[in-house]
């Protein structure tokens, strides 16, 4: 028997369509307000990521969640148009607050639209609800926590920025797993078996505590958080303030020396 828990991290298109029809799920669109106003998945509410990030302490998040009509039992599906990274950051924030039934739409809004699926520009009327707070510190890594734990043999630190950025500078001891590696052409996350094989090759397994980080606000690494959850890895944390904070605190940085890799880029 596998000890890994099966966690629902994504919701497929067909399931979401029927959930919308029977109004059982709260759908959150995390794109900018003007994009949302033009068109969105029917019944979706708008929570632009920037709005959330302007102040993401739990008391404020609670107000936002209540205003979106979400209580402890409401299933939530989040989507974006940025390969799932922004949606992941919002979903993680809900999870951190203590919400247990939140998942990502398996694809982006553009893809949804390109498949000819239903969308409209109506803003739904929401009845406010009362959510509780049961913070989950076990899914959060702070810089202090990271500094004391990153060199432990049981801890794997993953950098989800692009490879060239990683080569140029990264947190010492981190391994590189660019966010693009996690997706397929059509879906924000690879199929489970594919993802498992990839992580297994990298010796990223369930026996470790895994911490993900990216450039600044935990979006790309948020997606990685869900990628790791999708294969049932039990102990994953998001270093939500990521490399921007680490660098700002003038903590040690590692670099791939003596090679001009940037000059191989055609950008």
């Amino acid at each position: 028997m596998s000890q890994e828990k099966t966690v629902k991290t994504t919701t497929d298109i067909d399931s979401l369509r029927s959930e919308i029809r029977d109004k059982s799920t709260r759908v959150i669109d995390v794109r900018r307000e003007e994009d949302y106003k033009q068109s969105h998945i029917p019944t979706a509410v708008n929570l632009p990521l920037a709005n959330l990030l302007s102040d993401d302490n739990p008391e404020r998040v609670l107000k936002l969640v209540n205003a979106m009509g979400i209580d402890d039992e409401t299933p939530v599906v989040v989507y974006d148009d940025t390969f799932g990274a922004l949606a992941s950051r919002v979903a993680w924030t809900l999870e951190y607050l203590g919400h247990s039934d939140v998942s990502l739409l398996e694809t982006t809004f553009s893809k949804w639209k390109s498949l000819g699926l239903e969308n409209d520009n109506k803003t739904p009327e929401i009845q406010s609800k009362n959510h509780s707070i049961h913070l989950k510190p076990e899914i959060l890594a702070t810089s202090d926590y990271l500094e004391t734990s990153k060199d432990k043999p049981n801890v794997i630190l993953i950098d989800n920025r692009e490879r060239l950025n990683y080569l140029e500078q990264h947190i010492p001891g981190a391994i590189s797993l660019p966010y693009r590696t996690l997706a397929t052409q059509d879906k924000i996350l690879r199929p489970k078996e594919d993802m498992k094989r990839l992580l297994d090759n990298r010796r990223i397994s369930g026996n470790s505590e895994i911490i993900t980080y990216c450039g600044s606000v935990g979006t790309l690494s948020g997606l990685a958080y869900y990628a790791l959850k999708s294969v049932g890895l039990p102990n994953v944390k998001l270093y939500v303030r990521s490399f921007k904070e680490w660098k700002g605190l003038e903590k040690p940085i590692a670099k791939q020396q003596d090679a001009s890799y940037w000059d191989l880029s055609a950008e």
Partner: peptide, 22 residues
């Protein structure tokens, strides 16, 4: 790789800075 690829002089396409495990 690094989001770019390289056409060589011998009709190969090269992907650089790939992690050995990948």
């Amino acid at each position: 790789s690094i989001g770019s690829a390289h056409f060589s002089t011998r009709e190969n396409i090269q992907l650089h800075w790939v992690i050995l495990e990948d």
